[in-house]
């Protein structure tokens, strides 16, 4: 589904990804773990098409297409979803309207029929159960006044509505209490399917107690430095990242 080869990228003058390789197949859940500053979030940004990150070398193939050639909205229409580490607040745009606009934008892009307001309400009601929300959350402005946990749940709700093929969740677990973490994990697990894949970008192993990954990768200084099965996450939990991070990058600033 996703093949990343020798990916190099920079923000401004600072090169952050130094030749990254990763392959994710349909049906798989991959976790990318690593310390702050290792380039995890930059990788997520490159995949979603954020314009402040410049790709200087390498390639990314997604479902047979050159992903890097597509505008962010085309990537979304092709089934790629980024769950943001810091979801943006948009007061003045009701969450429900936003969700329907997003769904219809993608349906239109794929040549599918748009969903009208009534039908969408039925879809939204069903998906709200996943995050254990009542309707008041979708009447409010997008993420307006939401707590950190509520914002992350809203990302999961969006993912559930949009039903992407590849979901990249950037530190979806950060700042969550255990109940919110369970809701987020249940949301991911509910969407797991043979034709879908997930890339969980996380600092901690905790999320992986609830979402069992097929593969775990350790990222340090802009590269994948080790890959393994779920046991690798447990190992990291014990030993920390110290052994994986080259000295000179150890105190590297976050991108």
């Amino acid at each position: 589904m996703l093949r990343i080869q020798n990916l190099k990228a920079r923000i401004g003058e600072k090169e952050i990804l130094h030749g990254l390789d990763l392959t994710v197949n349909a049906g798989e859940v991959h976790a990318i773990m690593g310390p702050n500053g290792s380039g995890k979030s930059t990788l997520a940004s490159v995949l979603a098409g954020r314009e402040n990150v410049e790709v200087t070398a390498g390639s990314v193939t997604y479902l047979g297409q050159d992903l890097l050639a597509l505008a962010p909205e085309k990537r979304a229409a092709a089934g790629l979803f980024l769950g943001f580490q810091y979801p943006v607040e948009i007061p003045g745009v009701a969450n429900l309207y936003f969700l329907r606009t997003a769904l219809n934008a993608m349906r239109r892009a794929r040549g599918e029929e748009e969903v009208d307001a009534m039908d969408f309400l039925a879809i939204a009601k069903e998906k709200l159960k996943l995050v254990k929300w009542d309707q008041s959350f979708v009447q409010r402005g997008v993420n307006e006044g939401f707590s950190g946990g509520e914002k992350k749940k809203n990302e999961i709700l969006q993912m559930a509505v949009l039903e992407p093929k590849l979901s990249i969740l950037d530190e979806i677990d950060s700042g969550l209490d255990i109940d919110a973490l369970r809701v987020v994990a249940d949301g991911v697990n509910a969407l797991r399917a043979p034709d879908r894949a997930f890339l969980l970008v996380t600092h901690y192993q905790r999320l992986l107690d609830y979402v069992k990954p097929d593969r775990v990768h350790v990222m340090a200084a802009g590269k994948i430095v080790k890959s393994g099965g779920p046991e690798l996450a447990l190992e990291l939990e014990k030993t920390g990242y110290a052994g994986w991070v080259p000295e000179r990058h150890g105190a590297g600033a976050r991108p």
């Binding site: 098409g49 314009e51 505008a71 909205e73 979304a76 936003f98 606009t101 934008a105």
Partner: peptide, 15 residues
């Protein structure tokens, strides 16, 4: 806000 624009585009809305 560029971050907000990117957020919306990542959800499929054109620019």
């Amino acid at each position: 806000d560029e971050d907000a624009l990117f957020y919306l585009r990542s959800r499929g809305l054109d620019r």
